[in-house]
Amino acid sequence: MSIEQREARQPWILLSPALAAIVMLLIVPLVFIVVYSFWLKSAAGADTPGFFLDNWQEALTDPFYRDILLNTLKIAAITTLVCALLGYPAAFFIARSQGNKVGLLVLLMLPFWISYIIRTMSWINILGVSGALNSAMIWLGIINEPIQMLYNETTVILGLVHFLLPFMVLNIFVSLDGIDTNLEDAASSLGATRWQGFLQVTLPLSLPGLAAGGLLCFVLSAGTYITPVILGGPRDAMFANLVYEAIIRQLNWPLGSALSLLLLAVLGVLVIIYNRYLGMAQLAKGLG
């Protein structure tokens, strides 16, 4: 074998373990559940292989699944919006502050390192019947009896925002930090007010970061399983809870496969639209 041939083979040797892992443990399994979603659950014993449309019919037409899917998308959309509204000014402050930018950013990213389940359950300490807020209000004489503030859709969104806000801030920051501040100066020297300069120069240039943060927030909240279980009530199930229910509790794997793929398809459309207009590079910037 010539040296050139060996050179050409080297990167593939380096890549093969990682590629093999992704293909064998993600791509093939995904293809496998596509096939599995057309099988039929048997009352006893192994599921029946074949090409049955029953699971897909159930997943797509049962109003129960449809309502929860729509509700999941609604919760994800509100979460993303709230993250953007909270995150943008904070990211702007960090990017434009004269002080220690990196320090401020790292501080805000710290909760990201702290266990997701701990952060989620921490809201029970705040909003629970014997939590900080109720205790404070009773102590101040505002209320006599503790009120139940937990276990509804609002607290689910609250928990999700608390979990996802660092992703949003980081992505917007990366975008804002890359903007040449001379552009804003140029706008103001040409007579724009600071507000106009922001609206017409800074905001449009930071949209890629906002979009990347938004995509991450939306996809991660739409796929969430834990938050609605801990902070939601019995009627606040999200789509991932249905999947868990079908796979782990009912052991209806063909139906669970169809439901998983439905969720993947809905979110996949978003990722594809995003990729079409902004590309994956922006996302990698905010993650790395």
Partner: peptide
């Protein structure tokens, strides 16, 4: 680019879907 996208694909697939796919395939 395609290889990079493939390698970061696990981030883009909702974790619950990844979990179901792997569980069912390895069980198979």
């Amino acid at each position: 680019n395609m290889i990079t996208t493939l390698l970061i694909a696990p981030i883009l697939v909702p974790e619950v879907v990844l979990a179901v796919a792997l569980l069912l395939f390895l069980n198979f």
